[in-house]
Design a binder for these strands. Structure first.
Lengths: 152, 152
DNA sequence: AGTGCAGTTGCAGAATTCTTCAATTCCCGA
DNA sequence: TCGGGAATTGAAGAATTCTGCAACTGCACT
């Protein structure tokens, strides 16, 4: 059985591509947690969380065990933290650039809000605390639903 | 403008969640390349590639420049390699587990192909060359279309 | 056995993302 | 300035993924 490589990788990333799933993984970095706690932290209805947990479980990145009445979820051990850290690093830079561009725009007049694109690579002057922007526990209860896209 | 954190992260991963986009990022790790070359390597029709390149560009993870008639694409500098490496590491483990389970199944009879799930964490005996399975350049021209999912 | 809470599963409709084809824009060389 | 190749854009239909409601399974406790 030879693996269709790019599909597998893409599918892996897609599996990570959902706010609730990301939130769960980050919460689990602190150790196993019962569904109840995840539910309390994330604040969505049980069935939705269950759906997303199922996705994570199917991929094998988390495992669940039954612990006297409740179900415990835990990272499947792989270094999920490394991955999230790498992603955070990249995002920090991407967003920093974006911020820079936005500010640049604000400074100049306001030529139609529909700009072409940021021209990355060369952080003019790092805003306050870049890394903090993407800290695992920042913005905890921000709405997990509304859309928030990269510029179109 | 306060960022809806998990959305941003999720969107970042979703942006990576497509075989063609992954392929492009990996090819670009070797340095900037003209669309023509990407096209030759990946073998899909130009407009499709362009669509995917546009997605990558919108996110800011790659940039393009015009170079006498052709367009050159390049990683936006962020350490994409680190990210892909982390992902590879995790995938290696996940798939290794999966393989182990499959083999275990093969060894026993064949009780319905629809098993529950692998029970990760504790690599029995690492098959030949795990890391190689996910090498950036393995399986180059495998079909980039057909579905290849994690077990359902 | 009976009750109730904790989680999960099944689905249908809504929302997104993909894939393709056709049309268009940009440049470079004749 | 015209011809063309190189890429991109626009749009429609197909395919996936999400969301939320309702019904269901498993356990623990009496």
């Amino acid at each position: 059985m030879h693996l269709p490589l790019y599909q597998v990788k893409a599918e892996f990333f897609r599996m990570l591509g959902h706010p609730v799933r990301i939130r769960v993984l980050e919460l689990l970095q602190g150790g196993p947690l019962p569904v109840r706690d995840l539910l309390a932290d994330i604040g969505i209805e049980p069935s939705s969380l269950s759906q997303q947990l199922a996705v994570l479980k199917r991929s094998g990145i988390v495992v669940s065990t039954r612990e006297s009445g409740n179900v415990l979820y835990a990272l499947a051990g792989a270094d999920v933290s490394d991955l999230l850290r790498s992603a955070r690093r990249i995002l920090t830079v991407l967003l920093t650039d974006r911020e820079a561009v936005l500010e640049q725009l604000r400074r100049a007049d306001d030529p139609a809000d529909d700009l072409p694109l940021p021209l990355p690579r060369n952080i003019p002057d790092p805003p306050a605390d870049p890394e903090a922007l993407l800290d695992p526990d920042a913005g905890s209860d921000a709405d997990l639903h509304g859309a928030a896209h990269f510029p179109r």
